[in-house]
């Protein structure tokens, strides 16, 4: 038995040390913010992800676009096997990203434009008049299938009052509900007590 344990431990130790050279992860689909110190370009928001056979890199300049400020989306699409850039047409569109849109209301999408590959990049200019949360959609098609990629874009700072207002509303509703139930409880208690009192008086 001891020999078995020794052999098992040695195997474990071998496994532990034989795979030490793994490198750390990079999370797909999450925005990261890049400060370009080597050029005059402003800081950018970048999202990496994949769809089907393609690796997609999406950059927004500037990182935090404001209303009435010109911005740009750079989209890099390359094959997962070999890294060859996708050469075709990409159509960009935009819609509101709100609770109403999630529920199927006011989901009207506006076309931003169609772009072709230019120096390995699809560039789409942007300018939003209003502050808000938007979803940018990029559609393209290869020989096999159509692809749709969606990216969130925040124009201007999001309002902090919405979530706080909703939370305050929920708290108010909870407390009001508790108050109502307690009031009914108290009334029924009083009625019960008065009944008991009357019965005692009659006795």
């Amino acid at each position: 038995m001891m020999r078995f344990y020794l052999a098992a431990l040695l195997t474990l130790i071998y496994l532990i040390f034989s795979t030490v050279n793994l490198s750390a992860h990079h999370v797909l689909g999450r925005p990261s913010y890049v400060l370009n110190e080597d050029s005059n370009t402003p800081s950018a928001m970048q999202v990496e992800t994949q769809i089907g056979d393609y690796f997609v890199n999406y950059m927004v300049f500037p990182a935090f676009p404001r209303p009435n400020e010109a911005g740009r989306v750079n989209l890099y699409i390359s094959r997962l096997d070999g890294g060859l850039a996708f050469d075709g047409k990409v159509e960009f569109s935009v819609r509101n990203d709100s609770w109403a849109t999630w529920l199927g209301f006011s989901a009207d999408e506006k076309k931003l434009g169609a772009q072709v590959l230019d120096d390995h990049v699809y560039r789409q200019g942007l300018m939003f008049r209003q502050r808000g949360s938007y979803i940018i959609t990029a559609n393209f098609r290869d020989d096999k299938a159509p692809y749709t990629i969606e990216f969130p874009l925040q124009v201007g700072a999001p309002s902090p009052y919405g979530p706080i207002g909703i939370a305050a509303g929920v708290v108010f509703l909870i407390l009001a509900g508790i108050g109502l139930i307690q009031r009914r409880r108290s009334l029924s208690g009083q009625i019960r007590n008065s009944h008991t009192g009357n019965e005692k008086n009659q006795e």
């Binding site: 797909l28 689909g29 999450r30 992800t49 994949q50 769809i51 089907g52 056979d53 997609v56 997962l80 990629i149 969606e150």
Partner: peptide, 11 residues
């Protein structure tokens, strides 16, 4: 994700 056709954050 490739097998499922998952994209975005690959949730």
């Amino acid at each position: 994700a490739r097998y499922l056709g998952d994209s975005g954050q690959l949730i």
